[in-house]
Design a binder for these strands. Structure first.
Lengths: 166, 166
DNA sequence: AATTTACGTCAGCCTTGTTGACTTTCCAAG
DNA sequence: CTTGGAAAGTCAACAAGGCTGACGTAAATT
């Protein structure tokens, strides 16, 4: 599945020029990708870091600080700064673990869900437009290439979040 | 071309769940995308901002500061800080324009080309591996979706750089 | 009882972005 | 030839969000 060498000409998609185009596509697309949430967040006291925290708490409720740490790939101190303001502002709730009381299980409050909604609505709108314009086949390819581009550990995070529960 | 509504089920790729997967794929993949150059740059006095400047000077030699400014989407002051160190360190040369002497035309020195080579080799290696694993069709879809995701202005930059010369 | 784990926090630093104000150079239009 | 404005550079101050190092505390584990 990964190694069919058909003729020789179909390897043209591996030229340096094609790779460079892909690199720049990533650069410019990522700017678009973050533009809408950034616009919403500017003015509030929050930034991209808060968005990321909110996103992953939303998608994995009751996640622990450690979990979040490894998903986001930042230091405890960096995350803590963000998390503290979100908790103080009443967007996130940190519940002491029942089984292991050292752990903090993170949840979005109603207010937190509200902001999450606004942010992800904006981001999804752009994504949806792009998906629709490109079509299902292109989308499948898009996901395939991105997944292949991840570090193995990140790929585990990405896939694991699919059905991974608590 | 953009609006063929076949049955109803093929719209499943536009569900919120699919969009969320795409969003997270972008997040995790972008980390991988920047990981290798970042590793090279750490230890040197340079960062991602220097990499970006070097990349676009390499691909559009003799570009002006203004051009670079609009491609990178940062302020003059931000870019200038980066550019100054690159010039001081002899990686970039700023030639006064012949026609318009206010302009500075930017070029990589031999030393600059060397670093550019190291950085883009690393980044291309990952890209190539991902492309090869995914196959040409997936790559086409990848590029299509990314392009659709860009802001119109960025898309112009992206496409314009294809054949756009001096 | 000792150690490890999970979390929080203080302090300080770096990169890279921002705004605002100002200067120099120089093209082009009056 | 003068002047307006564009292009470029620079200084200062600030903020977000990374980082390291050191330390503290509570709870689980050994």
């Amino acid at each position: 599945m990964a190694d069919q060498s058909p003729s020789g000409e179909s390897l043209l998609f591996l030229t340096d020029e094609q790779l460079r185009k892909g690199i720049e596509a990533m650069f410019f697309a990522y700017r678009g990708f973050t533009a809408d949430p950034d616009r919403i967040l500017e003015g509030m006291d929050y930034g991209r870091a808060h968005h990321r925290a909110i996103h992953f708490i939303h998608r994995s409720p009751a996640t622990t600080v450690s979990n979040l740490l490894s998903v986001l790939g930042v230091t405890k101190q960096s995350l803590n700064r963000v998390l503290r303001t979100l908790i103080e502002d009443g967007l996130v709730e940190a519940r002491v673990g029942r089984k292991d009381k050292r752990e903090r299980h993170l949840h979005l409050t109603a207010k937190g869900q509200e902001l999450e909604r606004a942010l992800s609505d904006a981001q999804r709108a752009r994504m949806r437009a792009a998906y629709r314009a490109a079509g299902p086949q292109a989308v499948a390819g898009f996901r395939t290439v991105l997944e292949a581009m991840m570090d193995p550990e990140m790929r585990k995070q990405y896939q694991g979040l699919k059905e991974g529960g608590t």
